[in-house]
Design a protein around this nucleic acid. Structure first.
Length: 897
RNA sequence: GCGGGCGUGGCGGAAUGGUAGACGCGGCAGACUCAAAAUCUGCUAUCGCAAGGUGUGUCGGUUCGAGUCCGACCGCCCGCACCA
């Protein structure tokens, strides 16, 4: 071996792995299985450092499990439908399919050099008919099972692009592409009945013990269970069919504080009243407002008094007005509320505005009537005296008061206990081309008819144009106009396509039999599912993961996922982002001479790290070195990073186009801030092993990691040192006898134990720290050649999940059998993990004062004697009597005086 | 507003209630060199010449012993939010 040349060894070993089919997943009944999956990427065209971190983590797990004797499934695919492809077609011409397939080829070409242990024979892309055809089959099954249905729903409608927009795509009330004012429009759309599973999806969270607590909480909040009372008001002089008004409340104990009733503008009663032009105008006004969070927050509460009245359930003579109010949501509860301004901030605001009474139910001792939002112990109030004695409790807490109020309503027949969920059915219709076609036909005679399964896949037509706004499927007659599958009459295909979240809701199951003629195959699902370890970003904590949990259940119900345990992901790990400092400067906007330029207006521009750090050869203009900044900060601790940079920055009149560069703190890599490091550049400069090691080394994997040029260089230097160490050991005479063999063997076994524990505990940074320590131990050792060779082979094996290529090279050079990637994981001998002598610190009253070395199995009484005889201990005790002596075996001694 | 998390050197971060700061970055010094780079070696929480003192956001508590457990406060970050 000569120099460490990753560019030579990395492709060589990748070829060797491919030739030996090392990563081919095989169903092997003799072995336990392990399914590790990283969230599959959207094929944007280029991989970024976030991908490198995500897939390296999965790769470390996959390679380690494989070495530990598991039959491993570690696949990769493409979440390939979605709007960017259509936008590219609209902006630059071309076809979404070509754009997507090119990107897939491009990104695959970038992922291969990373040396990931992926079974590429299982590659899938959701935009290909052999994937989405099965999705269509399952959609038909879901229709039959009542899990997919059509209903009218209010959506954001862009009148220029003629499509539905997601809330995130509405900016200041305007479409993000067209800039047109967005309308709220009621459309008939397809929904999945996820709400059928609200209770189960919530309850099953308790069993996901290997999921982050944070994600489970976020999902629980999203499902949003609440318990309360549903009851009916009798209406006074309402239109026919509306003699009762159902309302839902979580605070039935405040019923005596009622001041008004309010209904949503979309409530059937409000619609019935729209014959009145004033009411029609008001409900139209309510619907105009957007649905984004900001708009809701700033929207004023407005109401319209319908003139109708309801009777209070506890006193029919007490009549309350019915308002139509913009803040009442039709799709939560019953779409109608009773207002209790004394104990609800929102109702208080409304009542104040419309001058409605504010009767208090609960009054804190010694206080005047005031709004109280917390459930309140109602013992002081006359207005809840009717609740005493209900639910067999003395109403000591707000919860008891609520329970008593529900019991009272049920006993007196005016209401019942109801559990409500915030979770709404999943609207999956998109008026887009580049998605999975919904496989139904609209027939004038038969209505909505599912496509026959033998006609699947319903493929997207290729001959479409994007020169007009709207969905090209709508204006594609030969694709759109078909015969009804049922009666044969002229009919039209559904032209909506499915939300891309549907595609990613079952891909994990498809990976178990990616080329099968059915969506899944029982034997394969039975062997591989569930995913043992899922790894991805926290940004999918709710939508993707909740949809997947629902879809697994829907597939199970429709016999497409023959499993007992229907949670798709046994363990979830959410990894942090890769960040980088942002380099920015002010650039003159006009002027020909340097002086004119200096005096002109400046605009803020950003610089790529390569420009500033001078990492790439040939990229010159750098006004400072980052190490200089660090030096200045060291000298002047009161300066911050920006201050140090200002101090260093020299305004060079001859180079005003590249003036002072300011550094702002590390943030997620983004194109707009230019703080991106291209993994391909890193691989070209240092190799894949360096990139892989660095993204795993510095920070705990769940936290953000800052990419730094110095860190990458340091990693490369370390790998070079390991290389040199291996070379040195390789050149030693085979029969050389040295010293300290036992120490090195113990260090080796300790490294095995600690690195293994680090990897298994998802503490890759700690595993790598132990590898540094072990490397130093081997480098310092003067043991005999045989022991050193054994140590460096173990080092290579332990490094291999992180840096598989250099590990393979060292393994081969040091006489390892076969491929390192196929060698068994080393086992630590417990006897080698304890030293013969241990150093015990001695504390006096909890302060460390001395230490002694004792044999590891010395009895406590002996240790006590030795400790008290220690001269430092005697000095610090200064003759004081010892009150207590605590000896923690192998740990510490504490003398109490 | 509701829910959750986190505060440790110049920086990223280690520490089953048991020697705080492993490991890495940065820095300093030395070796090699005419010199520089590269490489190697050593040092690097802080005050102090030393002995020793002080230190894990602040204040209190539990304990022989607290970064770790408990209570209050301060600060930062994240998620949700007109959900009746």
């Amino acid at each position: 071996m000569s120099r460490y040349e990753p560019a030579e060894i990395e492709p060589k070993w990748q070829k060797a792995w491919d030739a030996a089919q090392v990563f081919l997943a095989r169903r092997d009944p003799a072995k336990p299985k392990y399914y590790v999956l990283e969230m599959f990427p959207y094929p944007s065209g280029r991989i970024h450092m976030g991908h490198v971190r995500n897939y390296t983590m999965g790769d470390v797990v996959a390679r380690t499990k494989s070495a530990q004797g598991f039959s491993v499934l570690h696949p990769m695919g493409w979440d390939a439908f979605g709007m960017p492809a259509e936008n590219a077609a609209m902006e630059r011409g071309g076809h979404p399919r070509d754009w997507t397939e090119n990107n897939i080829a491009e990104m695959k070409g970038q992922m291969k050099p990373l040396g990931l242990s992926i079974d590429w024979s299982r590659e899938i892309a959701t935009c290909r008919p052999d994937y989405y055809g099965h999705q269509q089959a399952m959609f038909i099954d879901m229709m039959a099972a009542g899990l997919a249905y059509r209903k009218n729903a209010v959506v954001n409608w862009d009148p220029v692009d003629m499509t539905v927009l997601a809330n995130e795509q509405v900016i200041d009330g305007r479409g993000w592409r067209s800039n047109a004012l967005v309308e709220r429009r009621a459309l008939t759309q397809w929904f999945f009945k996820i709400s059928d599973y609200s209770a189960e999806l919530l309850q099953a969270l308790d069993g996901l013990t290997h999921w982050p607590e944070k994600v489970r909480l976020m999902q629980a909040n999203w499902i949003g269970q609440s318990r309360g009372l549903q009851f009916a008001f009798e209406t006074v002089s309402a239109p026919a069919g509306f003699d009762r008004l159902d309302v839902y409340t979580t605070r039935p104990d405040t019923l005596m504080g009622a001041s008004f009733a309010a209904i949503s503008a979309d409530h059937p009663l409000a619609k019935a009243l729209e014959a009145d032009p004033a009411i029609a105008a008001f409900t139209a006004l309510c619907r105009k407002g957007g649905t984004s969070a900001e708009e809701i927050e700033t929207a004023e509460k407005i109401g319209y008094d319908t003139g109708l009245r309801v009777q209070h359930p506890l006193n029919p003579a007490w009549e309350l007005p019915i308002y139509i109010a913009n803040f009442v949501l039709m799709d939560y509860g019953t779409g109608a509320i009773f207002g209790c301004p004394a104990h609800d901030a929102r109702d208080f605001e409304f009542a104040t505005k419309y001058d409605l009474p504010i009767p208090s139910v609960f009054v804190a001792e010694g206080q005047a009537d005031a709004p109280l939002s917390e459930p309140f112990v109602p013992m002081k109030s006359e207005r809840v005296s009717y609740l005493r004695g209900f639910a067999g409790n003395p109403l000591q807490t707000g919860e008891e008061a609520i329970a008593a109020a529900i019991a009272h309503a049920e006993a007196n027949g005016y209401g019942k206990s109801v559990t409500n969920y915030r979770l709404r059915d999943w609207g999956i219709s998109r008026q887009r081309y580049w998605g999975c076609p919904i496989p139904v036909v609209h027939c004038a005679i038969c209505g909505v008819v599912p496509e026959k399964k033998e006609n699947l896949p319903i493929e997207l037509p290729y001959d479409v144009s994007f020169d007009k706004p709207g969905n090209p499927l709508d204006r594609h007659p030969t694709w759109r106009d078909v015969a009804c599958p049922k009666c044969g009459a002229d009919a039209k295909r559904e032209t909506d396509t499915m939300d891309t979240f549907v595609d990613s809701s079952w891909y994990y199951a498809r990976f178990t039999a990616p080329h099968a003629a059915t969506p899944t195959v029982a034997d394969d699902v039975g062997y591989w599912m569930n995913v043992d370890q899922y790894i991805g970003g926290i940004e999918h904590a709710i939508l993707h993961l909740l949809y997947s949990r629902f879809f697994a259940r829907a597939m199970h119900k429709t016999h497409n996922l023959p499993l007992k345990a229907i949670e798709p992901f046994n363990a979830l790990f959410t990894q942090g982002m890769v960040t980088h400092e942002i380099y920015t400067s002010l650039r003159p906007t006009s002027g020909n001479t340097p002086e004119e330029k200096l005096r002109s207006l400046h605009r803020q521009v950003y610089h790529l790290p390569e420009e500033v750090e001078g990492l790439l050869p040939g990229v010159e203009p750098r006004t400072f070195l980052k190490s200089d900044v660090d030096k200045v900060i060291q000298m002047y601790p009161e300066l911050d990073r920006l201050g140090a940079q200002t101090l260093l920055g020299r305004q060079d009149p001859n180079n005003v186009d590249f003036p002072r560069v300011y550094v702002t703190p590390s943030a997620k890599m983004s194109k707009s801030k230019k703080n991106v490091v291209d993994p391909m550049n890193i691989i070209a400069a240092f190799g894949a092993d360096t990139a892989r090691w660095f993204v795993m080394s510095d920070s705990p994997p769940e936290r953000d990691v800052e990419w730094t040029a110095s860190g990458a260089e340091a990693t490369f230097k370390h790998l070079t040192r390991v290389w040199a160490l291996s070379t040195r050991i390789g050149e030693m005479p085979a029969d050389h006898q040295g010293e300290g063999d036992d120490d090195l063997q113990r260090a080796t076994h300790k490294a095995i134990a600690e690195v293994t524990a680090g990897i298994e505990g998802f503490a890759f940074n700690k595993a790598i720290a132990k590898l540094y320590e072990f490397t130093n131990a081997v480098a310092r050792s003067s043991a005999s050649t045989a022991t050193l060779k054994e140590a460096i082979r173990t080092l290579a094996r332990l490094m291999s999940p992180m840096t598989p290529h250099i590990a393979e090279e060292i393994w081969a050079a040091q006489g390892g059998q076969g491929l390192c990637a196929q060698a068994p994981w080393p086992k630590a001998d417990p006897a080698m993990l304890v030293d013969d002598t241990v150093t015990l610190p001695i504390q006096i009253n909890g302060k460390r004062r001395a230490e002694i070395s004792v044999p590891k199995d010395m009895p406590a009484s002996e240790v006590e004697k030795l400790a008290l005889a220690n001269e430092d201990v005697i000095r610090f005790l200064a003759g004081q009597p010892v009150k207590k002596l605590i000896v923690v075996a192998g740990r510490i001694i504490n003398v109490v005086v």
